[in-house]
Design a protein around this nucleic acid. Structure first.
Lengths: 150, 150
DNA sequence: GTTTCTGCAAACGGTTTGCACGGCC
DNA sequence: GGCCGTGCAAACCGTTTGCAGAAAC
């Protein structure tokens, strides 16, 4: 995702109006690496502009996705869709307990599907997701594979 | 997922009753490789026993998941959670247009996250998802990356 | 001044829950 | 006969939609 100023320019170019609400959402997302849900973004927005509606948040997220500046993360369990400001090819590291989600920017060699195993698909991308327990969750319960908080 | 008979035995062992509804769901899932949604399973069930409720389907799916005989697929776009009868470590091939989902049973070498990149996580698993266009969708529109049916 | 956006409320789709009846063991 | 499972309807949660008034350009 680009800078706030670039997003403003992009929106104007495409005929989208730049409202204070949208500008605020740009500001909150531009430097974000936390993969927030729509609800989390809504709460952050409301901390600054309490009268903003969920509708506006959802509208703006949809527009950013349409413009390729934001990407919904292929869903990792409940709590709603999470949004990724990193729209380039990358991988994920996911805590199965607290649902922390971290970007992995490095590439992996040898992930290729020979044609005879590709079932006739024309491949365009792939993504690796690592599942595990983050440092906090290991500390909290000895790192055993328990679900939820105990 | 085991055979129908094994599932019946497993349910009895664990104190779950084996009703005709549950047995039918076992039969429909035991050989399935199609990663159906709850709704698809419900429709298949109703084709045989029209009076079965969605509640019973959802209950039985939850029990199978609890017993480790079924696994929800980390969500790949809309239409509801899909269920995987293959509960062993494997990967997926996904058509971004028609949402066909195919198991890849082969292993990949070199997918390892050195500790310094693992952010302190204790890793337990990883999964590769390949995205592309299935043969049918390539045929239907020349394989260009368009969304939906045209 | 026109067109788009906003915020409200209602609708929506997938899933879960509360509850009384019914069937398994 | 006791208890668990079933089916119905309503609740639920994240998201989308319809609409009238308000604001960007």
């Amino acid at each position: 995702m680009r800078s706030v100023e670039d997003l403003v320019r992009l929106f104007r170019e495409r005929g989208y109006k730049v409202t204070p609400q949208r500008r605020l959402i740009f500001e909150l997302l531009a430097g974000d690496r936390s993969h927030p849900t729509a609800e989390e973004i809504y709460q952050r927005v409301r901390a600054v502009m309490p009268e903003v509606s969920r509708t506006t948040v959802y509208n703006t997220l949809r527009e950013l996705i349409t413009l390729g500046e934001l990407r919904p993360v292929e869903n990792l369990s409940e709590g709603g869709t999470r949004y990724d400001t990193n729209t380039t090819h990358h991988h994920h590291l996911f805590c199965v307990q607290c649902h922390a989600l971290i970007d992995i920017d490095r590439e992996f060699e040898g992930i290729e599907l020979p044609p005879e195993e590709a079932a006739g698909f024309r491949l365009v991308n792939y993504q690796v997701t690592f599942y595990g327990y983050c440092p906090d969750c290991q500390r909290a319960d000895g790192g055993r594979p328990s679900q939820g908080k105990e």
